[in-house]
Design a protein around this nucleic acid. Structure first.
Lengths: 148, 148
DNA sequence: CTGAATGCAAAAGCTTTGCAGCCAA
DNA sequence: TTGGCTGCAAAGCTTTTGCATTCAG
């Protein structure tokens, strides 16, 4: 059940914030609430839109800073599949991303569908590889259905 | 020999521009000259800086439009390994990109070093996959040497 | 000659920064 | 009480757009 998962995830974030000496503020909680359980890879603009009804005075600055913080503590991931617009993913386990070139929708691609690229030990060592990202582009099932 | 390669590459571009009914302008030629033979993945700003001594009146608008055109005809590739700054690669054969998290340098990673991820036929079909990009992040040899 | 390309300037889109005031711990 | 956090406004950086002028074919 997604709600239970999200609640558990939120507890995790609170614990991690505390452990790093970071404060538990209503704004941070609100942003975590929006993110955890949202698998559409929302942009800052979209996060702001979701927050503003309940938090009319929340600012973009706060959102940007909070997202940076959450990335730093490893609770969310930056998805740069779209040039010039960062998106965020609450699912931090290794996986890939797909973006539909027609509707722009972004979807997670699990490792079961596309195996993680094998990086040979010598390459890893030479470049001190710390992480790698695979982005896939195409036309999602819905868009292909429409264009037929 | 790089110069010969670049010259040959330039001829190719001219041919392709002609075949698409696009004009051969001094600005386009200058931009191609800068790109072909530059494997540092220059940004628009860097391209502008290289051009301005010889073409003091060239505009960013022209550079942006030309780069878009060259991408469309498949002569260069957009590299979005750095958020909010497009970079361009004259080498269009399939390969990966590495970015040093310390100095920011971007390097090509050939398929011989890291194999292209296998995308199963059913996944390809489901998402109508048209292309895929692998970005690698780490610390380049020079930066690791410095931090030791 | 003519439509496409250029160059300028203005605007747009996303993100960052400075700083005064506020609040979680 | 106090340092970290918030929110506002301004600025920054990259990219796009509109339009008059220029020029390649």
């Amino acid at each position: 059940m997604k709600k239970v998962k999200a609640v558990r995830a939120k507890e995790e974030v609170i614990k991690k914030l505390r452990s790093k000496g970071l404060k538990i503020t209503p704004q941070r909680m609100a942003i975590i609430d929006v993110l955890k359980g949202d698998y559409t890879h929302p942009s800052v603009e979209e996060i702001y839109q979701k927050l503003s009804p309940r938090y009319p005075t929340i600012s973009y600055a706060t959102i940007y800073k909070t997202l940076e913080t959450l990335c730093e503590i490893g609770e969310i991931i930056e998805v740069n599949i779209e040039p010039h617009k960062k998106r965020y993913d609450p699912f931090t386990h290794p996986h890939h991303h797909f973006r539909c070139l027609s509707c722009g929708k972004i979807e997670d691609i699990p490792l079961e569908d596309v195996a993680f690229p094998q990086i040979p030990a010598n390459v890893k060592k030479k470049y001190g590889i710390m992480h790698a990202t695979l982005y896939l582009y195409g036309l999602c099932p819905a868009c292909r259905a429409n264009s037929n």
